[in-house]
Design a binder for these strands. Structure first.
Lengths: 113, 113
DNA sequence: GTAACGTACAACCAAATGGTTGTAGAAACT
DNA sequence: AGTTTCTACAACCATTTGGTTGTACGTTAC
């Protein structure tokens, strides 16, 4: 079963933009298998807490992660559905490419009947 | 068979960054099924030739397309291998997420022997 | 109650991005 | 030869990005 992708250009922009940064990709990775708080995440990176928090905001606006406030902490969880959607987009491209090959095939078939 | 992905952070940055723009995604789409010249591509978009040319440069540096000079024109072809690599990265994330689920499963299994 | 912790957010700054126009050169057409 | 076409690239500009520090506020711990 294929994941339904009804994404606007802006949404796709935000998803790929969010993934175009190594720190943010690492945050996605970590939050796929755990639910760290923002300050826990910040310990891993050589930058300020505020910088990490801004990365989390970018990921949240791309819907790649969701935040859940737990007392005074904010737990971060990756959203695999958004990842699957991004993959679905790339799948469309690959299918397009395969269609080119089949078009070429049928063209060759026409040329040598 | 899985596509081998030995990509540096910078390379991944460039790939996702290149895909984070609707015009560039459209160029990729078009060059998957055809090999237009840059000026042909430029006709589709409400921007200058130079702007389109710069988009092509961004895609080329991400290895998402390759240029081939044909006389005085430059033909643009998408590189589906790079697309497959990007998909491979997202696949890794999904696998990571699935591993979390199985970890949780085994944890539950431990708790209720 | 007070101190410490975790988060949010504003203001600021340097660098990158996405667009523009202009110039120059190679290839093709007459 | 001269003109047109296509491409490359520089210079410039406004906006966005990715980082910083500082401040404020709710929650937890003593």
């Amino acid at each position: 079963m294929v994941v339904e992708t009804e994404l606007t250009d802006d949404e796709v922009d935000r998803i790929f933009r969010a993934l175009a940064d190594a720190t943010r990709r690492d945050i996605v990775r970590r939050t796929l298998t755990a639910q760290p708080s923002i300050s826990e995440l910040a310990e891993y990176y050589a930058m300020s807490f505020a910088a990490v928090q801004k990365h989390v905001v970018v990921l949240e606006k791309a819907d790649l992660i969701t935040k859940r406030t737990q007392g005074r902490t904010t737990l971060v969880t990756a959203n695999p559905v958004a990842i699957a959607r991004a993959k679905g987009l790339l799948d469309k491209y690959e299918q397009l490419w395969h269609s080119r090959v089949t078009q070429l095939d049928s063209l060759l078939a026409q040329e040598s009947p």
